[in-house]
């Protein structure tokens, strides 16, 4: 099998932390894909093409994982043994859940009325909220090394991300 490093951060030559420089990640991704992308091996023997394909798949998987804050955070937790099950089974504080219901009601209402402006306002507000929570997450991971708290925040972010996708779907449905 491939000898490519198993740790996605090491694969891209990045420090193993939540806060990463996205430009660094992009540059490293481009440099690696320039080596392993199938187009670079189209005229080479099968053995090299298969090898390169495996490398390209892995590099893209690693990139997709580190690129998005949520999957990056989950991956970081995974590396220290806080797996998906544990995150998925965390009970949420009731205050957060009430907040979620309010968001959802606002989204449902805007969708029902076909109100694009309202949906876009909600999307904007949500984006700002997600940014705040992500900043908190960076603090928990990189400054306080409080993984339990980080796991809780990741769980919240996952709710917010689902909400974001629902708003996007609502907007997409109203595009036509």
């Amino acid at each position: 099998m491939s000898e490519i490093s198993p740790d996605y951060f090491a694969l891209f030559g990045l420090p193993r932390r939540f806060g990463i420089d996205e430009a660094d990640l992009d540059r490293a991704w481009h440099a690696l894909q320039a080596e392993v992308h199938p187009d670079r091996h189209a005229h080479l023997p099968d053995s090299e093409r298969h090898r390169a394909m495996r490398g390209a798949l892995r590099v893209n998987e690693a990139y997709a994982t580190l690129k998005r804050p949520i999957s990056r955070a989950r991956y970081l937790l995974d590396l220290v043994g806080i797996g998906t099950d544990k995150i998925d089974n965390t009970a949420m504080a009731s205050g957060f859940l009430i907040e979620q219901m309010e968001w959802r009601e606002a989204v449902e209402e805007a969708r029902a009325f076909g109100d694009v402006d309202a949906l876009e306002q909600l999307a904007l507000r949500l984006r700002m909220h997600i940014d705040e929570v992500t900043t908190l997450l960076a603090e928990q991971f990189d400054n306080r090394s409080d993984r339990e708290a980080a796991a809780d925040t990741v769980r919240r972010l996952m709710f917010l991300d689902k909400l974001r996708r629902d708003i996007d779907d609502g907007l997409a449905a109203l595009d036509d």
């Binding site: 000898e3 030559g13 540059r27 440099a31 690696l32 080596e35 023997p45 053995s47 090299e48 090898r51």
Partner: peptide
């Protein structure tokens, strides 16, 4: 040539990252 291909790939990736740094 399978093993050779593996080493070449590994080598080129290491070079790519070194170049990147």
């Amino acid at each position: 040539t399978e093993e050779f291909a593996a080493r070449r790939m590994d080598h080129s990736i290491r070079t790519a990252l070194a170049g990147h740094k």
